[in-house]
Amino acid sequence: MTQPLLKVDDLRTYLFTRNGIVRAVDGVSFHVDAGETLGIVGESGSGKSMTALSIQRLLPRPAGRIVGGEIRLEGEDLVAKSERQMSAIRGRSMAMILQDPMSSLNPVFTIGQQVSDPLRTHRKLPPGELRKAVERLLEMVRIPAPQTRVNDYPHQMSGGMRQRIVGAIALSCEPKLLIADEPTTALDVTVQAQYLRLLRDLQARLGLAIIMITHDFGVVARICDRVAVMYAGRIVETAATTTLFDRPAHPYTQALMRSMPRLDQRSDRLPAIDGQPPDLRQTLTGCRFAPRCAHASDICRQQYPEMTVVSPGHAVNCWHADRMMAAS
């Protein structure tokens, strides 16, 4: 049996704040195979970003801490790595793209300087080759006239272009895993579609695995092979994308899909479901979605639902999974 590229096991990441302990990630398990795209979907505040930052070991300091679980990248446990070892892994074996292209680039350095930074650090390329490599990367993300663009500063570029540059930086050292945290949320619809197409092309070319974090099922439909649905610090349903769209088994997934904006609309609003997600500082018993769920029964409120495999590759944490499947 081949091991997955990334395997996350019972990850628990808490934020120790002045106002209490936020259980942002509370027992999350999933895997990503080489070359595939896994979507992580959920409302704002469900712990998607904290999951991503845990994998990168760059949690907000000093509050954030991984308190339990394992994160294995190519079999090696990242939780046990030192800060030094992580620096050698970040940018080389795995990379990450943040949500806001306007604030992701350093305003006082040229595009060329910023794209060459990881290459200089990890590859130790001499200056002549470095310049060529940078131009090749800009070409790869379809920046027109890369020879002159390298001398530009971020504020001279559009949001779409900046996000492609961030992409070029992330892919510069040919990582095996790319984590993209809502990379298209801040972009216009047409630019968004272009960007996703670009990511797909690059993925095919580089054999890259992607974790696509989003709250937008439109993005999921375009790019993801499999999806994990996250709610209140836990993954409640995992399935292949087509399966999830055809037969969503968790009431939360169903509600999310119902509130999904149409594909041709700009989706910068969060999908609205009645009620509020729970306060992650409280000790929660039972299913976290029960207070907002139309199908909740006594057991839902008392005990956290075990994982049910409803079909191969389709797992859900819901006491009423069978009934939900029959209804959907």
């Binding site: 620096s87 970040r90 080389r92 943040l98 604030s103 680039l105 990881p118 650090t121 930086i169």
Partner: peptide, 22 residues
């Protein structure tokens, strides 16, 4: 606190360079 500093760390750049240059 800025995003571009977080991104520099995500690129695995040496901390010394991030602080004293970036």
């Amino acid at each position: 606190d800025a995003d571009y500093i977080r991104l520099a760390r995500l690129e695995g750049l040496p901390e010394r360079r991030i602080v004293w240059v970036h």
